[in-house]
């Protein structure tokens, strides 16, 4: 077979349009996921009470069910339950937000719990106001510590957006398969997006791996 580069040359704008949608959906679900993830994280940090229980159930539930099921459920069942119309794109953002918030909550919680109790006590003993304890003593090192986990979750989220092609969201994987079936140049288009995903995700993985190694070596000495 021949690798028909002219097909790519002709249709690449659609692939980039798909990429734009992929990145937009990622950014939105990451942003909403961070907000809801923080709420769930602080709920779970309470360790008792109603907010704690809701947070635990929420986090466990959305970390357990497969993303594809979540996506189909939001797309097909949620509109029936709420009797309103939800576009495929909005369904995708909602499903991935549920997915992201549950994982992010656990990443945030691990980062906050890793701050040594003694440092918080030292700040309390100095009379540092609680807001400043939160910002300077807890969150600042916690964010640094959770960066590797955050970035490697981001790579998972980018990959998960490709599942949205199943409900017809015109993201990058969807564009490639539609173009493939229209032109029969499956190999060209699917290889092209493979390379694009790689170019986006691989540097992030490298960053996460390096940052993780730096953390380990810093805490070792």
């Amino acid at each position: 077979m021949r690798f028909e580069t002219h097909q790519l040359a002709q249709h690449y704008p659609l692939l980039f349009e798909g990429l734009r949608i992929t990145l937009t959906i990622c950014a939105l679900s990451l942003a909403f996921g961070i907000v809801i993830g923080l709420v769930a994280c602080f709920g779970k940090l309470r360790e008792r009470g109603i907010a704690y229980r809701i947070a635990v159930i929420y986090i466990d539930f959305f970390r357990t069910i497969p993303e594809v099921v979540l996506i189909f459920w939001v797309y097909s069942c949620l509109p029936l339950m709420l009797s309103l119309r939800i576009s495929a794109e909005a369904s995708g953002v909602i499903a991935l937000t549920l997915f992201a918030s549950a994982y992010l909550a656990e990443i945030f919680r691990a980062g906050i719990l890793a701050v040594p109790r003694g440092q918080i006590e030292a700040a309390l003993a100095l009379g540092v106001p609680s807001l400043h304890i939160w910002i300077r003593v807890i969150l600042q090192p916690a964010i640094r510590r959770m960066m590797p986990a955050l970035v490697s979750f981001l790579t998972e989220l980018i990959k998960a957006t490709s599942l949205l092609s199943a409900i017809g969201v015109a993201e990058m994987a969807y564009q490639a398969s539609v173009l493939g079936s229209k032109t029969f140049a499956y190999v060209e288009f699917l290889s092209a997006i493979g390379v694009l995903y790689f170019i986006i995700i691989f540097p992030l993985s490298i960053y996460a791996r390096r940052a993780e190694r730096r953390l380990v070596s810093r805490t070792a000495n």
């Binding site: 040594p116 440092q119 030292a122 700040a123 100095l126 009379g127 003593v137 600042q140």
Partner: peptide, 17 residues
């Protein structure tokens, strides 16, 4: 009160970052 009472711990508890 804590602003007027200093405390030093066995394990230093410095802010490592």
């Amino acid at each position: 009160l804590r602003r007027e009472v200093g405390m030093v711990f066995q394990s230093f508890n410095l802010f490592l970052h």
